[in-house]
Design a protein around this nucleic acid. Sequence first.
DNA 1: AATGAATGAGGGTTCATTCAT
DNA 2: GATGAATGAACCCTCATTCAT
Lengths: 198, 198, 198, 198
Amino acid sequence: MSPRPVNKDEKRAEILDAAIRVFARAGFHPTKIEDVAREAGVAKGTIYLYFTSRDDILAAAFERFADEALRGVRALVESAEPALDRLHALVRAMVAGATAEPELARIVFDFWAVRGPGAATVDFARIYAEHRRLIALLLDRAVAEGALPADVPEQTPAVLVGLVEGVLLQWLVDPARVAPGPAADAATDLLLAGLTAR
Amino acid sequence: MSPRPVNKDEKRAEILDAAIRVFARAGFHPTKIEDVAREAGVAKGTIYLYFTSRDDILAAAFERFADEALRGVRALVESAEPALDRLHALVRAMVAGATAEPELARIVFDFWAVRGPGAATVDFARIYAEHRRLIALLLDRAVAEGALPADVPEQTPAVLVGLVEGVLLQWLVDPARVAPGPAADAATDLLLAGLTAR
Amino acid sequence: MSPRPVNKDEKRAEILDAAIRVFARAGFHPTKIEDVAREAGVAKGTIYLYFTSRDDILAAAFERFADEALRGVRALVESAEPALDRLHALVRAMVAGATAEPELARIVFDFWAVRGPGAATVDFARIYAEHRRLIALLLDRAVAEGALPADVPEQTPAVLVGLVEGVLLQWLVDPARVAPGPAADAATDLLLAGLTAR
Amino acid sequence: MSPRPVNKDEKRAEILDAAIRVFARAGFHPTKIEDVAREAGVAKGTIYLYFTSRDDILAAAFERFADEALRGVRALVESAEPALDRLHALVRAMVAGATAEPELARIVFDFWAVRGPGAATVDFARIYAEHRRLIALLLDRAVAEGALPADVPEQTPAVLVGLVEGVLLQWLVDPARVAPGPAADAATDLLLAGLTAR
DNA sequence: AATGAATGAGGGTTCATTCAT
DNA sequence: GATGAATGAACCCTCATTCAT
């Protein structure tokens, strides 16, 4: 009799966003349900109408986080540009995604640190694998387009992903001394040059 | 009354090692002081004779961890080999150090995730900076030795460190699908080839 | 708007019956308002249109329970049979009432356990007193009818009530080993034989 | 190195006694761990050094309660008196045990009312069965001693136990109007008279 | 120095009750 | 009237830290 305009999914998303904001600001572990509730502008108990437990929030936050990260990357990969351009764009997008919101980027640390029995399941493997898959795809296209020699080592996707992640890591930890954009660009150039040079 | 000539520092180190073992096994956050005490074979109260707080243990664990990591690397850098060989050796050592004890390597996640007021100070910046400094040194030597052209981009050390860290990250998260040793080797080769090729 | 001509009292009764069903199945203390609402097919808030509080439901349940128990017994007592027959019938009815719905019988445990400030008022004394009064009446009639000697001890009604209750208790707690019907019958026979024998 | 005179079992028993006192006074369900702690003169956390959960306390309380109840009864049964005297003594002891501490006797209500998943296991069946066993023993002895005819109905022990329990129940619920001692005595006399009379 | 029993603040979770729709 | 989302007080339990022995 009262349809109530509050869409359950919308509300859940609102709370989740609030949670991600607090996690970004203060980290997951020190964050209390109370903090999330305050940020979301609801009462503590309300949280439990949308999530089954504190860990459930983390798991959901990770999902949302990962999905958003992959969505952007996938779009790039499907564009019509030459494969190597797309590769560069992809690397730049990864860096840009992280540097646009450093606090948000820091969350991954908390995701990584989640352990212990009953802890939220945080499937990093899936994301990295997907990243590698997309990069492998582009490398194949680049070879097909004649932009790269045929014998690209199979480790290359892992190397590229690792390179970007590793540079971002250093930047997060020491923003004053590491410029992730130039570093990642330089690294990609070097790698591709190396691939071509052999 | 105490048969072993354990002085204060030794005992502290023993407890610290025990703590690191537990952290490696179960992660820092889920680990209770009680767990550390049990692993160290002492009573809970004893821990507080050697550390001021739970966070203090983590900070100390990080220090020990970082010092050991740097010690090995420094030794390599000071050897008499050609600079490029030392560079390769350094990369291999970093990977080997992590892959020898995956559980131990996972601890860095916990270090990263430490945040919040009053939390232990974990100075990653220092370690990464030192790593970069050593690599820059080797690159300079390689240039001096004529093994590399003169215009090595300044981002290169960050790229090399990032590369190793990033590959290790993927391996930790998905050991079945990423072989960090070959990947890091391949990557270094590519990078150096790229540097030479331009 | 509401097709069924349910007036306030009927609806209240419906909810009450639902509540009693849930209490019987799961016990009063573990039962949430939500459970009652679900069983009654209404929303949680609706419960509060008919009851002022959770305890209020229990009190009402007890009233309904007690009234039903007494109604049956009173009917028996007012029949035209010889007093001793009515006494036997009464005992049998008490046992039958409980054994017909063991789960329902268990509710009395919850009624008994209700305590604490603000708790529902559950007036067991009234029911037992009424039971004793009815039995005393029958004993008097039996004496008048010459079926029993005149000097029936005044404790006899309490003894008869207690006997049935006590046997039922053992049956509830250990249904496999206590047969309440035969036991109560045997007991009544013995008691009456005892009364006559002196 | 510090033997500490606090015996773990003793302390547990102390807390348990405190808990039983509070349960007796206020009932199990409304009693908070905090209340037990206050009564025991310890802090909340201390309770959990001796009991695993709130329910665990109830289970332990029941055990202690039951054991004490049975201990007294067993001693009586093993005395050298004529069996019928022992039977009377037993009934009187049951009543006396309850009437000496009405508040304590009320606890059984709470025990009965314990239900729900994960709830403490309260094995009433065991106690009643043991009571019946002891009474059956005495009845057999009485027959052997020639004090009772041979054909004592098998329900008799259940009847005797029920009788006492049922009378106590009425007294607990309405102490002003039921005198459990006389009632139980009278009832036993009547029953035994009935047994002999047939 | 070592112990480990004791503490009690803290936080996750539940659920009776309210109230805007 | 009916609803059910929202509330927040309450409570169980954990565990870092203390301290008497």
